[in-house]
């Protein structure tokens, strides 16, 4: 029997890894979206939520490290699968088309590597903009000083490049999840003839909800001309 590590490196192990990390990333983005939507809440809600995270101390570092590992492992395995496939068919077809029917071949499934790499590049820019971006300090109702991330968000998304760039990337995230959600179930061995179609549909709905949820914020800020029109955001 192969060792634990060798088993993880096998073709089955690699799928377990993309599946587990993929599910981990899905859980992460659900929390991320829930936090983002706080900008529509009370004036201080978003900054308070962000401040609460930043005050978690060592636990935050553990979570961040876990997230970083999940992202890197996910990207590494995803890219290596794509790399292997080029080796597995050195000479391609002159003509190729899907047979349809029960196939899940779609733009979403065929573009996982593209949407994934875009997400990876986006991630670097995104962390640089928000985690390491310069902010004013605000005083929260509780009296603590906190970074005004809401202000940074408002000013960032008034720039068309950011507003539309984020929107485009979130649409690609939707496509990634459109195949990824169902695929993760199958990778993690949960594939049942009876529920397969249902899981796929739930996955597509989930993907649309995530994409729309995330891209709504930059577009709202941009078209609401930030503080003037977006009254809920600035009160």
């Amino acid at each position: 029997m192969p060792s634990f590590l060798d088993a993880l490196k096998s073709q089955v192990g690699r799928k377990i890894l993309t599946g587990v990390t993929g599910v981990g990333l899905i859980i992460f983005i659900i929390f991320h979206l829930a936090t983002n939507l706080q900008v529509f809440g009370d004036v201080h809600a978003f900054n308070e939520a962000a401040h609460a995270l930043e005050s978690m101390g060592w636990l935050l570092y553990v979570l961040e490290a876990g997230l970083a590992i999940a992202f890197l492992l996910h990207a590494y395995v995803g890219i290596s699968i794509w790399w292997n496939r080029r080796k597995a068919r050195p000479e391609g077809y002159e003509k190729y088309q899907s047979k349809g029917g029960s196939s899940h071949m779609s733009w979403a499934s065929r573009s996982m590597i593209f949407t994934g790499i875009v997400l990876l590049v986006f991630l670097v820019i995104h962390i640089d903009t928000f985690k390491f971006g310069a902010t004013e300090m605000v005083t929260l109702p509780g009296g603590e000083e906190a970074r005004d991330l809401k202000g940074l968000m408002l000013s960032t998304f008034q720039q068309p490049l950011y507003a539309f760039g984020y929107t485009a990337v979130m649409i690609l995230l939707g496509f990634h999840l459109g195949h990824g959600f169902w695929s993760a179930f199958t990778s993690l061995t949960m594939k049942h003839n009876k529920y397969s179609a249902l899981i796929y549909t739930v996955g597509v709905i989930f993907a649309v909800l995530m994409a729309v949820g995330f891209l709504f914020i930059p577009l709202y800020i941009y078209f609401g001309e930030g503080c003037e029109a977006a009254l809920i955001l600035c009160q």
Binding site: Q11, R14, K15, I81, N84, R85, K87, A88, R89, S98, K99, S102, S103, H104, M105, S109, R110, M112, H179, W182, S183, T186, S187
Partner: peptide
């Protein structure tokens, strides 16, 4: 042979 990406083709 390559890996399976769950295309179901």
């Amino acid at each position: 042979f390559g890996d399976c990406s769950n295309y179901a083709e």
